[in-house]
Design a protein around this nucleic acid. Structure first.
Length: 425
RNA sequence: GGAGAGGUGGCAGAGUGGUCGAAUGUACCUGACUCGAAAUCAGGCGUAGGUGCAAGCCUACCGUGGGUUCGAAUCCCACCCUCUCCGCCA
């Protein structure tokens, strides 16, 4: 959430920033609500102070053995007034909470203007898309021909549309990719591997910003407790620091987790219906950093390079784009997408998204650090990025490494994990 | 799944209806003593909201949410979590 003090003291500046996203903040309504809250709170506080004083008098009078009946009557009247005052303040506060929890994050000034992905700014490219002496096939065709290694029909039979079954060498390659990424980030980039729950509480999802606004994107588990399947390991991993006050010497925290991700893809019907690009369930290796506020921008650049390193080792051509104001995620202050080249589609497709949330998630989570400069607990900054999406990496390795006969040549970095240098037909 | 115990400040731990935001110990910070340190002594030391130029003052918070009461850490109800024992289980 946005710093409530900033929202109160500079609502017009906040509104101007959010307007870049196309978000309309009604400053008049906000200010009016804030004024009402203040009046209601002062009144409730006053009544409570009076009630407390009165209650104290009752105690003292009883101690002296005096008649307390008149005091009790006054107290009762105050209690009634207080009920009304508290009802009023609770109602206003609830309205304010809803408003605040639904505000997107402030954008960094360097975020490019623009309404949709066509305005995203390409920052750099790495590698050269291979030229083929034959028409490259897409991963669906390649996967099916590798001993029915990619079976969408089976996935649909078991669960429904947007699920897949991997078999044999393709399943093994999928596993190898995850292992390779975890090792790279733990051994060379300084991340600590964590294994986390794949279901999370509403409080955790509120912390990272999926709730209350994006419930339709989640799979809810119905039972005695309200769990949701995680849409990304960002949720459990970032919530490691929820309700914590960290010491400066513990920072930065760097975590990596390999997990399945579950997304309902509501609103995406008709998009990417073919293949593994957009599934209800997919694996992802996620990297998360928890840092001091002053260091988050540098950490964002570093974390993005860590994700890029995965693609470089896999010899996959990619480009990095800065998402424009209209395309950036609700909770993010700035996002870089890494897009991998897919010969089957003859274009770059997102394979990683690296975001700096600054204090947006930390405020919702009450994740703080004790700033030595002030001695006070202050919100941390949180960042995360895919390092990278395993399913899409599988797609990219298959499509980029394909040979005329349908076999797949594997990058050197993957061979020790897979146990061979190619996948035969 | 059954039975029981318990959740209080960084930690430990008192508090079973009334000057309790909470004793005490410990950790930490400042000062005194010391060449320095330890020990000792004195003081300070939670989070958040409101108000004030400021000192300060007011309010909320004792797992969470309700309730009873003039007044709740304390009584009642529900839920969550932890621990012990029994059963079951990968």
């Amino acid at each position: 959430m946005i710093d409530p003090k900033l929202l109160r003291s500079a609502p017009r500046e906040v509104a101007a920033n959010l307007a870049r996203r196309g978000f309309v903040l009604d400053v008049e309504a906000l200010t009016a609500l804030e004024d009402r809250r203040k009046i209601a709170q002062v009144e409730a506080d006053r009544l409570r102070a009076e009630r407390n004083a009165k209650a104290k008098q009752v105690g003292m009078a009883k101690g002296r053995g005096e008649d307390v009946a008149p005091l009790l009557a006054q107290g009762e009247r105050l209690a009634q007034e207080l009920v009304a005052a508290e009802t009023a303040i609770n109602a206003v506060q609830a309205e304010l909470d809803v408003l605040q929890l639904n505000l997107p994050n402030l954008l960094q000034e360097s975020v490019p203007d623009g309404a949709d992905e066509s305005a995203n700014a390409e920052l750099r490219r790495w590698g050269t898309p291979r030229s083929f002496a034959f028409t490259p096939r897409d991963h669906v065709e390649l996967g099916e021909n590798l001993g029915r290694g990619m079976d969408f029909e089976a996935g649909a039979r078991i669960a429904g549309a947007r699920f897949v079954v991997l078999r044999g060498q393709v399943a093994r390659l999928h596993r190898a990719l995850g292992q390779f990424m975890l090792d790279l980030h733990t051994r060379e980039h300084g991340y600590t591997e964590v294994y986390v729950p794949y279901m999370a509480s509403p409080a955790s999802l509120r912390g990272t910003g999926q709730l209350p606004k994006f419930e339709q994107d989640l799979f809810a588990v119905h039972g005695e407790q309200n769990y949701y399947l995680i849409p990304t390991a960002e949720v459990p991993v970032t919530n490691l620091v929820r309700d914590q006050i960290l010491e400066a010497k513990e920072l930065p925290l760097k975590f990596v987790a390999h997990s399945p991700c579950f997304r309902s893809e509501a609103g995406s019907s008709g998009k990417d219906t073919r293949g593994m690009i957009r599934q209800h369930q997919f694996d992802k290796v996620e990297i998360v950093q928890i840092v001091e506020p002053d260091k988050s921008r540098a950490a964002h650049e570093e974390l993005t390079l860590h994700a890029e390193a995965v693609l470089q080792r896999l010899e996959l051509p990619y480009r990095v784009v800065a998402l424009c104001a209209g395309d950036i995620g609700n909770a993010s202050s700035k996002t870089y997408d890494i897009e991998v080249w897919l010969p089957g589609q003859q274009r770059y497709r997102e394979i990683s998204s690296c975001s700096n949330f600054e204090s947006f998630q930390a405020r919702r989570m009450q994740a703080r650090w004790r700033n030595p400069a002030t001695g006070k607990p202050e919100p941390l900054h949180t960042l995360n990025g895919s390092g990278v999406a395993v399913g899409r990496a599988l797609v990219a390795v298959l499509e980029n490494g394909q040979q005329a006969d349908g076999s797949i040549s594997l990058p050197a970095a993957l061979q020790p994990y897979f146990g061979a240098d190619r996948i035969g037909v």
